[in-house]
Amino acid sequence: MTVALWAVVPYIALTIFVVGHVWRWRVDQFGWTSRTSQVLESRLLRLGSPLFHLGAFAAIGGHVLGLLVPKTWTEAAGVDEHLYHLVSVSAGTVAGLMVVAGLALLLARRLTNPRIRRATTRADKVLFTVLAAVILLGMTATVGQNLLGGGYDYRATIAVWFRGVLTFHPDPGLMADVPLIFQAHALSAWLLAAIWPFTRLVHVWSAPIAYLWRPYVVYRRRTARPAPARPFEREGASRR
C-alpha cells in the first residue's frame, strides 16, 4: 500500500502529466487558452483573479523552497529551523489566505452569475473541485499543524521523498508515518497534476514573458516557406 501510494501513484500522475501535455499541444492548440470569462463578468474577477494568481505564485514559490531545497542547504545559509518555520508559516499563511479568498471569489461568480455558470465546462467543474481540495487540504496542514498545532517538519520526510520521486529514487517508506493531512494534500496534488493537461490550467505554460522584449508590431507572411507548416508548428519569429 505504501509503495502503491507513494511510488506508483506519483509516476502514474507524472506520466499522464507529461504525455497529456504533449498530446494536448499536438492536437488542441485551438483549445489552449485561459478561457477568459472577464467579458461576461468583471466586477468579482477584478478582485478575485489577481488575489488568486498572486497568492498562487507565492504558494508555488514556497513549495519550491520547502520541497526542492534540502534542509542542509538552508542551514548552511544560516537559517535555523526556528527561523525557517517562522518565515514559512507566516508567508505560507498569507499566501494561502490570498489563494483561498481569490478562489472563493472566483467560485462565487462562477456559481452565482448565470452567464458564467452557463460558460462552465465539465473540465472546469473537475478542475475547480480538485483545485479547491488541494488548496483547502494544504491550508489545513499549514494552519492546523504548523501554525496552531505543534508543527511538523515536512522537510525531513515529505521533501526528501518528493526529491526522490523527481530523481527516480523514490523512498515510499518516508511517507508512511507522515500526518494524514499532509498525505491527503500530497495525493490530491498528484491528482491535480494528472488532470492538469486536460484543463484550462495549460495556460500556465503560455505565460507571455517573451512579450517584454518582442517587437511591438508582428509581421507574418501568408505563405509558409519553403514547405507549408503543419498547423501546430510555430511560425518563424516576427520581424520588424
Binding site: 489552449w32 487558452t33 485561459s34 508582428v218 507574418r220 507572411r221
Partner: peptide, 24 residues
Amino acid sequence: SGAMYKREEDGIVLVDQNRCRGWR
C-alpha cells in the same frame, strides 16, 4: 502571445487562433 499579426503581403491584421491564449 504574439498571436496577432499583420500580413506582410496585404497588411490584413489577423488573430492566429492556435496561438491566442485569451489574454484579451
